[in-house]
Design a protein around this nucleic acid. Structure first.
Lengths: 224, 224
DNA sequence: GTGCGTAATAACAAAGTTATTACTGAATTA
DNA sequence: TAATTCAGTAATAACTTTGTTATTACGCAC
């Protein structure tokens, strides 16, 4: 899951980024509204975290612009104080959730997970697909009851596919949601990680979990 | 819109119910976890409001149970104090939003409306045309119930025609929409791919799906 | 019917995609 | 520091698709 983080306080930005990275998110950070707008237009993120008090272009305007240009990934706003007015304005501008400083990074992560989950149409943090099961909050994966342990990148790929069961995702889309801005689109990482996932999840290839659609992409099959 | 409200504090329950009723919601109230679970299983609500501190069966367990049984309506939790751990647990269990007491009933209503709005509104990605059916997100194509598998270019051509049922599209238009800018317009690729499509979709030629209009182009017939 | 231009068809070789394995260097951990 | 794990690259094998060519069939005007 790739996030946009727009926060001008460098210390807080770094701190949040660390927490988000260790929760297996991919993070693009921006430190003012203009940069945030540019990045937010550039990619279709899985979610954005936007501080309301930003230099150059304030948070409310940033959100308004993004929504006007039909970017509809979930947006979570950070407000400086417990300012009721700010929150209402933010939500009215098109944000989906807010958090007042100071907050616990764990809470931010929990809220992001809930937002993303809901935005892809999943209500429960347990995503089930036949014998497969993913717990978004604990990152635990089981296949036919057996616990599967995945590396960071394997997890990112798998989680993204589980949030989009049955949908064809091209390699470029997968790269965009798993890696940050400057990653080589011509690399064959996706092929390699698809291979690794297939081997870990279903070593005997009994299920054909991840289907290849030549020239189109990969699809995690919807299983019964 | 029908809501489930699970709150043990009788005064608060009545108060909220009043507000919700006057906001034109229909409200079923329960005053402990067990009753909440029973009602929550019974009916597919548009949203549920659940207090975390409940007698008999606590809120977290209630949410976990509901989600396990695939009730996917949005859940908003109420937490007693500003206890972030409760919130995190609640969100991890599958709640979508929270509100800390005390709160303004207006804010509850605003959040409920936002949740419900988001949980509805997911356009179906299906395009149907008589016995033909195309699912844009899974790239799955069925013809009279049978799954048809197409190669990348076949898919592009077919999808384009399905998005323009009944319209005549010249070969040059088709080439322009399927290939990037500089593709030889004198090639006969379209003829070849039309042929391949016809053969895959309707091998016996019973339907005459793709009509040829000599000198003008091809047309995917509108079927009943 | 003849003839011209357009479309259908079949077969083929080149080009492109994906699978698979092995390897390197970086990061992490003991 | 050595050992281990992991990410990403590279090379190549296996396989599919693509677009061309060549040929045949068809539609239409005269």
């Amino acid at each position: 899951m790739r996030l946009l983080l727009v926060e001008d306080d460098q210390t807080l930005q770094n701190n949040l980024k660390q927490h988000l990275l260790s929760a297996n998110f991919t993070v693009d950070a921006a430190c003012d509204g203009e940069e945030g707008l540019f990045q937010g237009q550039e990619y279709e993120y899985d979610a954005a975290i936007i501080d309301l008090g930003l230099p150059k272009l304030d948070g409310i305007k940033l959100i308004t612009e993004l929504r006007r240009d039909h970017h509809d990934y979930p947006i979570l706003i950070l407000t400086a104080r417990d300012n009721w007015q700010d929150k209402v304005e933010g939500l009215d501008a098109g944000a989906d959730d807010y958090l007042s400083k100071p907050f616990h990074p764990e809470e931010l992560i929990a809220r992001l997970n809930a937002l993303i989950r809901r935005s892809v149409g999943k209500a429960s943090p347990l995503i089930k697909n036949g014998p497969l099961c993913l717990n978004i909050s604990s990152h635990e994966i089981t296949m036919a009851g057996k616990i599967i342990s995945l590396s960071g990148s394997e997890y990112k790929l798998f989680a993204y596919l589980m949030m989009h069961i049955g949908e064809v995702k091209s390699k470029s889309v997968l790269i965009e949601h798993i890696y940050d801005q400057d990653f080589d689109l011509d690399s064959n990482v996706i092929e390699v990680f698809v291979r690794r996932l297939r081997k870990k999840l279903d070593p005997e290839g009994k299920f054909d979990l991840i289907e290849t659609l030549r020239g189109q992409g990969y699809k995690l099959k919807h299983l019964t």
